[in-house]
Nucleic acid binder design. Sequence first.
DNA 1: CAAAAGCTTGACGTTAACGTCAACGTAAGC
DNA 2: GCTTACGTTGACGTTAACGTCAAGCTTTTG
Lengths: 131, 131
Amino acid sequence: MPQKTHTISELARAFDITTRTIRFYEEKGLLNPQRVGQQRRYTDADRVRLTLIQRGKRIGMSLQESQAIIEMYDPAQGNVEQLERLLDNVNARKQQLHAQMQDLKQMLTELDDVEKRCQQALNIVNKKEDN
Amino acid sequence: MPQKTHTISELARAFDITTRTIRFYEEKGLLNPQRVGQQRRYTDADRVRLTLIQRGKRIGMSLQESQAIIEMYDPAQGNVEQLERLLDNVNARKQQLHAQMQDLKQMLTELDDVEKRCQQALNIVNKKEDN
DNA sequence: CAAAAGCTTGACGTTAACGTCAACGTAAGC
DNA sequence: GCTTACGTTGACGTTAACGTCAAGCTTTTG
């Protein structure tokens, strides 16, 4: 069956972003929807990209970085050399994400410490109230 | 012993940032070093804060968010109400970081998929060469 | 003690990631 | 068929996070 397509405002509603944002992403090369006359029509492939972009943003990636990852998803089916370069890029990204994971864990354990100290302070106050 | 202090350029070298950046962080309320005359003097507490800021940046936090976390570290030792608010904030942050961890994992598994597909494509090419 | 090196406060410039009009074409409901 | 809603392309505005001078003070070094 022919892919169901969406207008720009449908997509905007679905992803809770503005149409301006969607056009901006296209301007930056992250999307390029089909056209029906002047108007843009978005397929599910575009939705996948938007999902990637939003996840990227949540973990602190720039649009350029998200674009790099998107391009890894749509490999232009190149020759061996290109495949190997792609593989290198993928592994570099993976390493970076693992490092980021470590930073996240560290931040979490430090917040755990703050929580504990906070709890203790509250316990002391409560014990005083018991007297 | 009295804490050893550092000048702004010493700190800049140590953290591989510019002095402008350090002053900017102060302007935004993330640091406030002591002064000796006009000049700033930084203690280890400031280094801790800078470490936090940099880790924050690596996981995609804004300076405002890092500031919020810094303030959790230096609790103004308030009353019960303040302690409870702090605890709420800490837990909210923790939740957000856990969510971010999920996003990271997802991104990683998707990159794993790309890697596998890439490997397969290379294997096929190599087998052809065997013939 | 003079020049160089370092510190200080402005002030303006820059990039990313959109927001916010404006002015105009097109499609859709009554 | 006309209004109303939606879409399009500019162009300029905005915020965060610094970079980049400039102009002046101070401290260190030969």
